[in-house]
Simulated assay, not measured.
Amino acid sequence: MAGVTLRKVFKRYGDVEAVRGIDLDIADEEFVVLVGPSGCGKSTTLRMIAGLEDISDGEIAIDGYVVNDVPPKDRDIAMVFQNYALYPHMTVAENMSFGLRLKRYPKAEIKTRVDEAARILDITELLERKPKALSGGQRQRVAMGRAIVRNPKVFLFDEPLSNLDAKLRVQMRTEIKKVHLKVRTTTVYVTHDQVEAMTLADRVVVMNGGLIEQIGPPNELYHHPKTRFVAGFIGSPAMNFIPVRLEEASGALNLHISGGIVLRVPAARTERYKPFAGRQGLLLGLRPEHITETSATMEPGVEPFDIRLDVIEPMGNETLVYFTIEKDTMCGRVNPNAGAADGQPMRLAANLNHMHLIDPGGAVL
């Protein structure tokens, strides 16, 4: 078991900087997920930790030892790939034990480790099968088993669920989390799927353009994003962003929105936002669950407004409603019995106790 440290790590391909001086500390036994859109540098970062990519500048340490010049086989890490990388001519047991056999571990110890990993992953009955006789989820378990038997200092997962169908992805997310709770090994996991990141991670590292935008526990990133990018990337459906003009009137602050909509800023946030009154280019950030149907009694900070809906999406336990403000499509979540209908007017309520005010540079104020 070991921590992983990255200090001012760069990766350059010619004139292109894929990773741009990132700093990251991963604690022993922690499950950290690197998440971001394609091309953000997350997989490159993982491959540099593994030693599959040379770093252009900076320092990577595992268990306190700098490994910049240490070959992958000597870093005591185990990697689970997107494509499983199983040998088709070997049984499950042979695939799982292959690395141990190369290192000439005693047969009895190999069997003990394979049997234990198979028990943890619930694949004991599959040990004599070959990969062609396995489902995608079973193959992924075997790939994880091959990593577990090595008892490495660090597990590295490179988008391991991207080849699975939606239902199996959900199931395997749960399995990976269960395995981590049983085998408390430091884990670095890469995905472009923010739902995977939120459900699996102790901490999430949101990357964009080769930089780290924010690091934190899933709930912190969801409720307290520091940038517009993080606010928009984390959460499904995504956060709404609405151009606003912030104006002070009689000691209160009002948000002026296109179409004559005026919303009063909650008193608890007035002092915080007062310095930004009159500033150009501000955005209001509000998650769909904070735009709902009105009720007879609404708490302070919940502001009603009238809108015409474009379309609705009944989801069973809730209905997603979509409407347009200044050519931007907004999304809210309402009760299925709230009377929402395609193309019809509706009175909605914005819970500004959960609002985010974003400056033109993308920082959350």
Results as ranks from 00 to 15, higher is better:
L221T: 02
L348F: 10
V265L: 09
H256P: 00
E196D: 09
G99L: 03
A78C: 04
R113E: 06
R129Q: 13
P288T: 12
Q344L: 08
R129E: 04
I77Y: 05
D165F: 00
E17F: 08
N240T: 09
V188M: 08
E30K: 11
T191F: 05
M330C: 14
V4N: 09
S56T: 14
G339N: 04
I257G: 04
L365F: 00
T112R: 15
P217R: 15
V154G: 10
F305R: 12
G136L: 09
N317M: 12
G232Y: 01
P218D: 09
R141C: 01
S162C: 02
P345Q: 12
K327R: 15
D57F: 06
D69E: 15
R287C: 06
V204D: 05
V142R: 07
P288D: 00
R20L: 04
D63W: 01
L246P: 03
V149A: 10
V206S: 11
E313V: 14
I261C: 09
D193E: 06
D165H: 12
L255V: 05
K226R: 15
R20Q: 15
L46P: 06
G21M: 08
G209P: 05
D202N: 15
Q82A: 11
A201M: 00
A201V: 05
T186W: 13
F241Q: 10
P304G: 08
V32K: 08
R184T: 03
T324D: 13
E159D: 13
T297R: 13
V33Q: 09
I212A: 10
V265F: 02
R129Y: 05
E299G: 04
F155M: 09
I261Y: 03
D76N: 15
L286G: 08
H290S: 11
T227D: 05
T174G: 04
L161F: 09
L134R: 10
D122W: 01
H356M: 13
R228I: 02
R104D: 07
L24F: 11
R279L: 05
F10Q: 09
T297Y: 07
P88S: 05
K8C: 03
L134T: 09
P345A: 10
R287D: 08
A118E: 08
L52G: 07
V154M: 11
P72I: 00
T187V: 03
G232L: 05
A363M: 12
V35A: 07
A143E: 01
A252N: 12
K226F: 00
D74F: 04
R75C: 06
Q194I: 13
P304C: 08
N317E: 13
I49N: 06
V70F: 03
G339W: 02
D69C: 02
Y13H: 12
A18Q: 03
E196K: 13
M207L: 12
A277D: 08
E29A: 14
V190L: 08
A340H: 12
R173N: 02
